[in-house]
């Protein structure tokens, strides 16, 4: 007789782990936002510099 399949449980997080998870994710998200803004600013200024520099 086939054995009944037990449901596979997802790994659990305690309340402390959840707090830690959100604190770390928030830091990571802010870091990513800063990098993306920096890239936009860099590309903007590269474009302006290239446009105002006489070519070869």
């Amino acid at each position: 007789m086939p054995q009944p399949q037990l449901p596979v449980e997802a790994p659990s997080m305690s309340k402390e782990e959840e707090v830690e998870f959100y604190r770390r994710r928030r830091g990571r998200n802010i870091g990513m936002l800063v990098v993306l803004i920096a890239l936009v600013v860099i590309f903007f200024f590269i474009t302006i510099a290239k446009l105002t520099t006489p070519g070869p």
């Binding site: 707090v19 959100y22 604190r23 994710r25 830091g27």
Partner: peptide
Amino acid sequence: VSPLHATTDWSEL
């Protein structure tokens, strides 16, 4: 725990 109210952990950055 609301993500909006979570303090920020800079250690990973």
